[in-house]
């Protein structure tokens, strides 16, 4: 189920650019346009007022929704849904806070021994929140056709947060890599892969678990 679910989401995000392509108008090809002809210099639409940088609308925040698969170590892979908020500090660096939820399945031990339950239903709820820093390592343009280019970036992320799982809060470090494609100047499609690392002692000994998360999502700048 989960795989089909992810495929659908990924396919949907891949189709999005095509749709907006249809909406775009073709760029004009006359290259010798001059912006400073007599008419425009006397353009009355330049208001006689002093402008401050703060008068220009700022759009540094990006809010988004994502979904995908979270592989919870020993507890199988399950769908995850989350929201995130980003603050773009500069062209290189952004800060991100995210909140995600999933629900763990059964360990193979539980599956093989019918009736054995390591965790209650409530304890299987997996909720995490985290704050991190991202670095746009490879910004650039992606070309869909001769006349159409989309801005995009491959970024690295590192963060820390808490995971509420198995009845306890676990301090969690997460590392990840992601890809952001801007459909237009304010809408993004993102694919992220993250490793959430925390210690878990449910299976007797305290061990470090790696919980890999693969998600696709959409975001809006504001």
């Amino acid at each position: 189920m989960e795989t089909r679910f992810l495929c659908t989401v990924l396919a949907a995000s891949l189709l999005l650019p095509l749709q907006s392509l249809a909406a775009e108008q073709e760029g004009d090809n006359n290259t010798t346009v001059r912006d400073a002809d007599a008419e425009s210099v006397l353009d009355p639409r330049i208001e006689r007022r002093h402008i401050k940088e703060a008068d220009i609308d700022a759009e540094n925040f990006e809010i988004g929704l994502y979904t995908g698969i979270l592989s919870i170590e020993d507890f199988g892979s399950d769908p995850v849904l989350g929201v995130r908020l980003d603050y773009h500090l500069s062209e290189d660096v952004f800060l991100e806070g995210s909140l995600g939820r999933s629900k763990a399945g059964e360990t193979s031990f539980e599956t093989l021994n019918a009736g054995v339950q390591l965790l209650t239903d409530d304890e299987r709820e997996y909720t995490y929140y985290q704050v991190g820093v991202g670095y746009n390592l490879l910004p650039g343009e992606a070309f869909l056709s001769e006349n159409r280019a989309y801005n995009n970036a491959l970024y690295l992320m590192g963060g820390a947060g808490m995971t509420d799982f198995a009845g306890d809060d676990q301090f969690t470090l997460s590392l990840g890599v992601g890809y952001r494609l801007l459909i237009n100047d304010w809408m993004t499609v993102r694919v992220d892969m993250k490793d959430h690392i925390f210690n878990l002692d449910v299976l007797g000994e305290d061990k470090t678990t790696h919980n890999l998360e693969l998600t696709a999502g959409i975001g809006v700048f504001f």
């Binding site: 001059r34 912006d35 400073a36 425009s40 210099v41 353009d43 639409r45 330049i46 402008i51 940088e53 220009i56 609308d57 700022a58 759009e59 540094n60 773009h88 500090l89 500069s90 062209e91 952004f94 700048f221």
Partner: peptide, 11 residues
């Protein structure tokens, strides 16, 4: 001398 419209700023 050419005019420029400032739409919005980001990062």
């Amino acid at each position: 001398d050419a005019p420029l419209t400032l739409e919005y700023r980001r990062a």
